[in-house]
């Protein structure tokens, strides 16, 4: 039963991701991206990664995709220009990609892919201890992977600062009052309301 579910959602993911790059309207494209992520989240659920599925929804659908949508709407791009030359490059690209894919599938089918016998953090054992997915993730994230976790936090901070610095522009004559000027006010020059 789960397998059929998996096939179904796989199909939807592939199709919708195709549409992401195919549709001419960027807004539609972003919407398809959201749909793709939504279905990917369901696949994650099938893989019993509940926390990740929810994170994917919150982070991508809730934040990143909306950001995309925001930008797309803000920029206001004409459709006709965007699709120019698409058909010219598409066959060649498809050819290359299909060679690439066929080669990969050949490898997957061959017996050259070797998997390790048992994992490092056994999910079953953890589950047997009475922990759910989120709790066990938290347990390892805050202990074994603590430093990486911190670094990724810094990475996000960096990205935030970077985005602000990049997008920030010096506007002449801003309407807000400079805090320095505000502090330097003295008694004589201040405007009095009688």
């Amino acid at each position: 039963m789960t397998l059929y579910f998996f096939y179904f959602f796989t199909f939807i993911v592939i199709l919708s991701s195709f549409l992401v790059i195919f549709v001419s309207n960027p807004v539609h494209s972003v919407l398809f991206l959201i749909f793709t992520f939504f279905n990917a989240a369901i696949i994650f659920l099938i893989f019993k990664a509940e926390f990740l599925a929810m994170t994917l929804l919150i982070v991508y659908v809730g934040a990143v995709a909306v950001l995309f949508l925001f930008v797309v709407m803000m920029l206001n791009i004409s459709e006709s220009v965007i699709k120019e030359g698409f058909l010219r490059y598409f066959p060649f690209g498809l050819l290359l990609i299909s060679i690439f894919l066929i080669e990969l599938f050949m490898i997957f089918n061959s017996d050259k892919v070797i998997f390790p016998e048992n994992g490092f953090l056994k999910i079953n054992e953890i589950m047997n201890l009475g922990m759910d997915n989120t709790k066990s993730l938290g347990l390892f994230l805050y202990t074994d992977y603590f430093i990486i976790f911190q670094i990724s936090g810094f990475l996000l901070l960096l990205a935030m600062i970077g985005a602000i610095v990049l997008a920030h522009s010096d506007i002449k004559n801003p309407k807000s009052i400079s805090p320095i000027n505000q502090k330097n006010v003295d008694k004589k020059t201040i405007i009095k309301l009688n």
Binding site: L96, F100, M106, I107, S110
Partner: peptide, 16 residues
């Protein structure tokens, strides 16, 4: 991107 794809394809075919 094209060169990346070509290189990747060649590498994989080498591996295969």
């Amino acid at each position: 991107v094209l060169s990346i794809i070509i290189g990747l394809t060649l590498l994989i075919s080498l591996y295969t």
